[in-house]
Design a protein around this nucleic acid. Sequence first.
DNA 1: TGATTTTCTTGAAGTAGATTAAGTTTTTTG
DNA 2: CAAAAAACTTAATCTACTTCAAGAAAATCA
Lengths: 210, 210
Amino acid sequence: MIWVAFFMLSVFKIDSYLYFMNSILIAHIRKSIDLNDSEAEMVLSYFDQQTIRKKTLLLEEGHICNKQYFILKGCLRSYIINAKGNEQTLQFGIESWWVTDYMSFQNQNASHFFIQAIENSEVLSISKTALEELLSQLPKLERYFKLTLQKSFGAAQMRIKYLFTMTAEERYHHFNDSFPDFVQRVPQYMLASYLDFSPEFMSKIRAGKI
Amino acid sequence: MIWVAFFMLSVFKIDSYLYFMNSILIAHIRKSIDLNDSEAEMVLSYFDQQTIRKKTLLLEEGHICNKQYFILKGCLRSYIINAKGNEQTLQFGIESWWVTDYMSFQNQNASHFFIQAIENSEVLSISKTALEELLSQLPKLERYFKLTLQKSFGAAQMRIKYLFTMTAEERYHHFNDSFPDFVQRVPQYMLASYLDFSPEFMSKIRAGKI
DNA sequence: TGATTTTCTTGAAGTAGATTAAGTTTTTTG
DNA sequence: CAAAAAACTTAATCTACTTCAAGAAAATCA
C-alpha cells in the first residue's frame, strides 16, 4: 500500500514538464531495447537534469571528463584549440545525442577536448560511478550504449571519408544539403572549423565567389 | 561421463595451433569481461577462422558488409577510392583489432568502403545472424563490444584532431614516433593516404627536403 | 634467375585554401 | 535604447601542399 501511494506520487510527477523532457531519453533507449516502466523510472533516477546557459563549458581540455551528457534540448559541441589559438569544432550534438569524451571518461585521464553549450540547453548528465552502478543493475543497457557508439563511430568514419574526398566547397554544400535546419542554428565560423576550412573561405563560398 | 569425454577431446584440441590462435580472441575478451571456459568454447563456436592472402578483398564498396573480422595475425585496412581513382586508407587493423563497416553491418545497406588484407592474415569472422545469436546467448558480450567501440570511436576522434591540428610533416613524425614497428609493415603510399598527403610528399619528408 | 610488377624518388610547375587586415553587419547586454 | 561584443565579408598576398612526368629501386613471380 505504501508502494502504491509512492507510485501515485510519481505518476503525478509524470505530468510535469520535467518528466516530459526526461522521457526523451527513455524513448530513445526504447528504440534499441525494451524497457518496462519501472525500469525506466530506475534509469532516470541515476541522471541529473541540468539547465545550461549558452557558452558554458561542460568540459575543459586537461580536465578529466566525469560526465556523459544526453541532450534533451539545445546544442553542444566539442572542440579543441589549435597551435594558432583558434577553436576547431570536432563534433556537434543536438536533441537525443550523447556528448562526452569517451576515452577520458573511461580511463579517467586528461581530456584533449572542450565541451561547450552553443545554445541554452537542457541535458541529462550521469557520472562514471552512477553509470557503472546503473549498468550493473540493468545490464541490458550495455546493448543500448553499444548501438549508440556504433552509430557515432560510423558517423566519424564517414566524416573522415568526406574530409579525404571532398573539396572545401563540396563539404559545405554537402553539409548544407544534409542538414539545412541545423546550419541555421550554429555560427558560420564554427561550421567552417567543423568542415576544416577558414571562416573567410566560407564567406567566399556562400557569396559564390569560388 | 559422456560430457567428460567430450571435454577431454576439446582439451586435446586446445594444444593445436588453431586453438592457440583462437585463444587470442578469448584473451582479448577477458580483458573486458569474465568468461569461464565453457563460455569461451561457446563464443568460439560462432566464429569461422579464415586464412587470407595478401591483397584479398574482404569487402567491396557497394556491397553489404556481412562479417565482422577479428585479426589473429596479419594486417587489414579499410579504404575508399576517390574521384581521381586513388585509394585512400581510412583505417589499419593489426593483431587483436576488429575491422568491419559497422554501419553497413548493422543496417545491412551498401558499404562505402573496401576492406583488404595487406599481409597474409588469419582472421576470425562472424556473420550478423551468428553474432546476434551469440549475443542473445551471452548478453554480457554486449559490454565487450561496447568497450571495443568506445576505444575505436576515441581513436577516430583523435585522428580527426590530428588531421585538423598538425601539418603533413607533423602527422608523419607523430605516427612514426607512435608506431615505429608498424611503419615497417605497410607500403609508404598507403601510410601517406592514411595521413592525408600524397606519396610524393611523403618521399620528400623522409628525404628531409621539406 | 631474369622479367614483370610494385613501390619509391626527384624536380618543376600549379593551385586550393590560409593569412592578414580592415571594414560592415548582427546580436547581446546593461 | 545605446554601447559593446560577436559574427561576417572582402580583397590582396602567400604557402603548404598537389600534380605531372620520368626514372630508379625493390619486391614478386614464372
